[in-house]
């Protein structure tokens, strides 16, 4: 493959991989945050019920 081909392939692959990983990691992060929040609110609910 000629040099232009390699450049095109590497640039587009890198861009796609970076954005895919970044956005999917953010989704995982926000999902974790949400589940923590839910756990915390369950804890508060339960503790208020207990008190």
């Amino acid at each position: 493959m000629k040099i232009y081909g390699w450049i095109f392939m590497i640039v587009f692959w890198s861009l796609i991989i970076i954005f895919t990983v970044y956005t999917f990691a953010k989704i995982l992060q926000s999902s974790n945050k949400k589940s923590h929040k839910n756990n915390d609110s369950n804890f508060i609910d339960n503790s208020s019920k207990n008190s």
Partner: peptide
């Protein structure tokens, strides 16, 4: 060669 077929601009 196949990759070149797809990627060479």
């Amino acid at each position: 060669k196949g990759l070149a077929f797809i990627w060479e601009p």
